[in-house]
Structures are given as structure tokens and as C-alpha cells.
């Protein structure tokens, strides 16, 4: 938090993060050498299939990995402070205050036996020295700003008295209360009705912009991501396979896995007889093959892919991809 810090310095810089789970059946390398930067005010989509390690990245940043999981190595630099090595009582001050999290299922992320008011107030009690009246005013303002009417009465209500969409609005309000600089949203719209999804996404984008915060949007849904984010990081088997600005990634990805993900989005403009999908399934992460993890499912795989693991390297425009034969470069038919 130096005064002279350059504006180009990233707010968050994740370097070679490794979060492994030591299970009875072997070590699950859920996150393996993941690196990315996030600038102040930027929104990044963290994309991949289920089990790809996306959520683990989010929980690692907050230091919320429970045994048998452990951060094995790497750095999580928030304004230069390494959270991977921070003690628990320091992390506790960062959680909620500097970095807030929005969970996937609003039906279960609010405590059923406490009022909305109490759950909001708790955040302010922990992280501010506002008096009770000021905290109450702030909670009401916050509820109104996420589009909940009669906010004053709603403070006395319990979570079960709200619909799923309303609950996620409450969760967003709680996350924004202490003006955090980074929001980690873990599949925030997956559990909601399709009609509510885009409302909630727009709300989140507006809130993040209003507070000048940054956001990591963890999702398996590229369609969702493309509306909201500035840049995309694609994870596969716990590793970054492609990253770049959203426009470049969506319009012409260079990694075949990203291509597959994009092609699996139903497109109403071009009616296809069948929805395309990526063949095969994610390999057993405890027992990854030599070479490229994606090669068994990849239409472009060649002999080299079975021998050597591809490294993340620049391909075109803003894109980086971990692929020996990226799309759109030499040798492409």
C-alpha cells in the first residue's frame, strides 16, 4: 500500500499457485501452477468445466482451503502482500474487508436462523467502527442499491422469506457492505432462474463499477462471462490453458479447449441440428497423462502433444495459450 505505487501495478497477482488435496486415493492437484494478474477495476472470468479447479482458486485467495487441501506453493499478492503466507488473524481482517466472496447457491449461503439485518450488520461490526445507527443506515442503503424495496422492514426478515434471486441480491449487498477492493463470485448465477441471471449479473457489474472494485467471476458458462468481463482465464485440469481479453478469446480463441467451450454454447442465430460438445471427459486429475492434459479430447493433437507438456506462450493479439498447435497460427489449414 505504498503511496507511489504505479497505477499499472496489479491489485492482485497470483503467481504459480499450487493448491493440492491430499486424499486417500492420491494427491489431487486441483490448482497447479496457476498465474494471473488483475488490475484495479478489472473483471476477470475464470472459466472451465466442473472439477477444473476454478472454485479452489477463489477459496485459496481467501485462505479458506480446509484440510485435506493445502496451498503447496506460489504467491497470492494483494497490493504486494503475500496472502499465501499471511497468518490466520491477518486473513480474517482481509476477508470481507478487502476481498469479499459471493457464493453459488443463495439458498444455502445465508444463515437460516439469523435475520438479514443481523447478517449484514455482522460484516460492518467486524470491519468498521461505525455505531449502531450508522451501520443500520448503511445496511438499508445497501439493500436499496441492490434493488430490494422496503429495505427497512426487510432487515427483520429471515432468508427463507426471500426468493432465490432476492437472496442473491442480499448476498451481493453483504459482499459490498465494507467496500472491498476485490469480489470473488463463485458461479453466482448458476442456481438462479435464467430470467434472473442477467439481472443479477448486471447488478454485480454495476456494483463493482460503483465501488471501483475488481472482480473474479468464476463460472463454467462462457455465455455469461462474455457479457460482463474484461478478460478471461481458462482453466483445464487445474492449469491455465488460455488467457486474454474477452473479445479476442470469444471471437477467435487459440486453444482448442476454449474453442470447444465456445462451440458448446447454443447459438440461436445458427440453428444447428445438434449441439456440439467436446468429446470425452476430463481425465482423472490424480493420474494425469504425460504431455498435454487435453490431447485425448483434442482434434488437433499430434505426436508431440503426448510427449511434451505445452507451456503458456503468447499466440495472437492479447492471447496466451498452452498449446503446441494453437488455432490460427502457422500450419493451420
Amino acid at each position: 500500500m505504498t503511496m507511489q505505487s504505479e497505477s499499472r501495478d496489479p491489485l492482485l497477482s497470483v503467481r504459480d499457485l499450487r493448491t493440492w488435496f491430499h486424499t486417500f486415493s492420491g494427491v489431487v492437484k486441483a490448482v497447479n501452477d496457476v498465474s494471473f494478474d488483475l488490475a484495479q477495476g478489472e473483471i476477470m472470468g475464470l472459466v472451465g468445466e466442473s472439477g477444473g479447479g476454478k472454485s479452489v482458486v477463489g477459496f485459496s485467495i481467501l485462505g479458506l482451503i480446509d484440510p485435506p487441501g493445502r496451498i503447496e506453493g506460489g504467491q497470492i499478492l494483494l497490493d504486494g502482500e503475500d496472502l499465501a503466507k499471511a497468518p490466520e488473524d491477518r486473513l480474517r481482517k482481509i476477508r470481507g474487508r478487502e476481498i469479499a466472496m459471493i457464493f453459488q447457491d443463495p439458498m444455502t449461503s445465508l444463515n437460516p436462523v439469523h435475520t438479514i439485518g443481523r447478517q449484514m450488520d455482522e460484516m460492518l461490526r467486524l470491519h468498521t467502527d461505525m455505531d449502531e445507527a450508522a451501520r443500520r443506515r448503511r445496511c438499508i442503503e445497501m439493500l436499496e442499491s441492490v434493488g430490494i424495496s422496503q429495505a427497512e422492514d426487510r432487515l427483520r426478515a429471515y432468508p427463507h422469506q426471500f426468493s432465490g434471486g432476492m437472496r442473491q441480491r442480499v448476498v451481493i449487498a453483504i459482499a459490498m457492505l465494507a467496500h472491498p477492493r476485490l469480489i470473488i463470485a463463485d458461479e453466482p448465477t448458476t442456481a438462479l432462474d435464467v430470467t434472473i441471471q442477467s439481472q443479477i449479473l448486471k447488478l454485480m457489474k454495476r456494483q463493482v463499477a460503483d465501488h471501483g472494485a475488481s472482480m473474479i467471476l468464476v463460472t463454467h458458462d462462457l455465455a455469461v462471462v462474455s457479457e460482463v468481463v474484461d478478460k478471461i482465464t481458462v482453466l483445464y485440469c487445474g492449469q491455465v490453458v488460455e488467457r486474454g481479453d474477452v473479445r479476442d478469446v470469444i471471437s477467435a480463441p487459440s486453444h482448442p479447449y476454449t474453442r470447444g467451450l465456445i462451440d458448446s454454447i447454443p447459438n440461436p442465430d445458427h440453428r444447428q441440428p445438434r449441439l456440439s460438445q467436446i468429446p470425452g471427459t476430463v481425465p482423472d486429475i490424480r493420474n494425469l497423462p504425460k504431455g498435454c492434459n487435453f490431447r485425448d479430447r483434442c482434434p488437433r493433437a499430434q505426436a508431440l502433444c503426448a510427449q511434451e507438456e505445452p507451456k503458456l506462450a503468447p499466440t495472437r493479439q492479447s492471447l496466451f495459450a498452452a498449446c503446441h498447435f494453437p488455432i490460427g497460427t502457422g500450419g493451420d489449414a
Partner: peptide
């Protein structure tokens, strides 16, 4: 195992 326990921890509540 419930999500609200993890959510509370993510808010910065002590263990």
C-alpha cells in the same frame, strides 16, 4: 458442511 458456515468465514468471522 453447510455453505453459510463458509460464507461466514469469508466475511471475516473468527473460527
Amino acid at each position: 458442511r453447510q455453505d453459510y458456515m463458509k460464507f461466514a468465514r469469508a466475511k471475516g468471522v473468527s473460527r
